[in-house]
Amino acid sequence: AEDTGVRVELAEEDHGRKSSIALRLWVEDPKKLKGKPKDNGAIEFTFDLEKETPDDVAQEMVDSGFFHESDVKIVAKSIRDRVALIQWRRERIWPMIQ
């Protein structure tokens, strides 16, 4: 995944069973963002792998003032890349459960 300057990681162990999972997002390199992110720390949130889209969360983060509207795509892509990795890993490790 391309380095967007925004890092998204699992905020909990993933056992492949729950559809909703805790993620943690923070800005690793603010220079890569168009707008100036509010000087916040790591933002932890729950994401439903089956029902929600990264764009939903990114827009909510912009609405909540964490990021500038012009960065909504970068934030969505960062979340999308991590979610894709989680789903890829789930398919490989727990194919039966999926």
Binding site: R7, W26, E28, D29, P30, N40, G41, A42, I43, E44, F45, T46, D56, V57, E60, M61, D63, S64, G65, F66
Partner: peptide
């Protein structure tokens, strides 16, 4: 505590905590 919580109108909770120094790229 240094945790703050923001709840979006759609209901999602965002919990903000300090990023460990080790995880920030050199500025």
């Amino acid at each position: 505590s240094s945790f703050t919580q923001v709840v979006h109108s759609a209901g999602r909770r965002f919990i903000v905590s300090p990023v460990p120094e080790s995880r920030l790229k050199e500025q």
